[in-house]
Design a protein around this nucleic acid. Structure first.
Length: 321
DNA sequence: TCTATTTGACCTAC
DNA sequence: GTAGGTCAAATAGA
């Protein structure tokens, strides 16, 4: 998985002069597809949590959303294929990387590393780790500055993980490209912010957010900013709507016809769990809805028959709240 | 007073 | 020479 979301830093697009209208349209399509897939992932996580234990309603919701997600995946694959790329002198983007619209060509960082992961998200600060901003730079030919973050445990634990955040669109909500460099070696950042990560990934009822904010220190408060709470509201509204639609369908016998391919599904999206000290250093917590631009979508085997599971027991042994 | 953020300067890859 | 990445002093906020 990690290898699939890993980037090859191929050159981005050069200046706006070289971008034709077809290129713009192509980028716009990919951007919207990526956004759609991201929202689907968020909705799926929320729906499965809201409908947990509701038999067929849960199964139906999961089936539909999996299909929607798969459709986005197929479309993205098609649009990203060289045959579909707009005519350009630039080499086609690699399939492993999510589109990073409006970004200038990237240089290799000073320590000669390449991003180990890149993702596009509307909440760039919700990734389960604590970061300290150490710089901001105006990047030529881009509308927004790039911000540089280090792991908060950079000094005390010599953690070399860094990330760069750059807004890439004026959409509502705005989209950010987040690039991660180096693995976390601090071994603690994830579990210390697990509640915030859980909240942002929809694993915690919104009602608990304010309590969490009141309970936790300023670090969590910083994470749960106004935008985060607003997004959580929007997600829950979507889930409520879906739950209403599916509400009359539950209480079906266990083991419906779609219950095949267990391990396949679990492999692509294991149940979220609270990161612990025992987690491998540097392993990112599974915040699936944030990972679209990292192209978790590549984990889907689009050639296989659709697989679905009956074990979306997401928070069961997950976050101990 | 402590901690985090901002921002201009400096360093280095291209 | 230019642009991107990092450093560190200045500043702001708790």
């Amino acid at each position: 998985m990690q290898t699939q979301s890993r980037l090859a830093v191929s050159g981005g697009r050069s200046g706006s002069n070289s971008s034709s209208a077809s290129e713009d349209e192509h980028e716009a399509v990919i951007r919207e597809l990526t956004r759609g897939h991201e929202l689907t992932a968020q909705l799926r996580a929320e729906a499965l949590r809201a409908l947990r234990g509701q038999g067929q309603a849960e199964a139906t919701a999961a089936f539909i959303l999996q299909e929607v997600s798969r459709a986005f995946t197929v479309c993205l694959s098609i649009m990203s294929s060289p045959a579909r790329a707009p005519p350009s002198s630039q080499p086609p983007p690699t399939m492993e990387m999510a589109p990073a619209p409006a970004l200038a060509p990237q240089r290799r960082s000073r320590d000669d590393s390449i991003p180990r992961e890149q993702r596009m998200t509307s909440s760039p600060h919700f990734d389960g780790y604590q970061w300290r901003k150490y710089g901001q730079k105006r990047i030529t030919k881009t509308q927004f500055p790039r911000c540089y973050f280090k792991c908060s445990f950079h000094r005390e634990r010599n953690c070399r993980a860094t990330k760069q955040v750059q807004q890439c669109s004026n959409d509502d909500p705005p989209q950010y490209v987040v690039m991660y460099f180096n693995e976390h070696t601090c071994d603690t950042a994830a579990w210390e912010t697990a509640p915030a990560a859980a909240a942002s990934s929809g694993m915690m009822p919104l009602d608990n957010l304010s309590a969490l904010v009141a309970r936790q220190g300023h670090g969590v408060r910083a994470l749960l900013d106004e935008r985060g709470v607003q997004e959580e509201h929007e997600r829950r509204l979507l889930v409520s709507s879906l739950a209403c639609v599916l509400g009359g369908q539950h209480q079906s016998p266990a083991g419906s016809a779609v219950n095949v391919g267990h391990e396949h599904e679990q492999e692509q999206e294991p149940p979220p769990r609270a990161p612990t000290r025992d987690d491998a250093p540097g392993e990112m917590p599974r915040i699936i809805h944030e990972d679209v631009a990292g192209l978790d979508v590549m984990d889907y085997d689009v050639t296989d028959a659709l697989c679905f599971v009956d074990s979306y027991d997401l928070p069961g042994d997950g976050f101990p709240f």
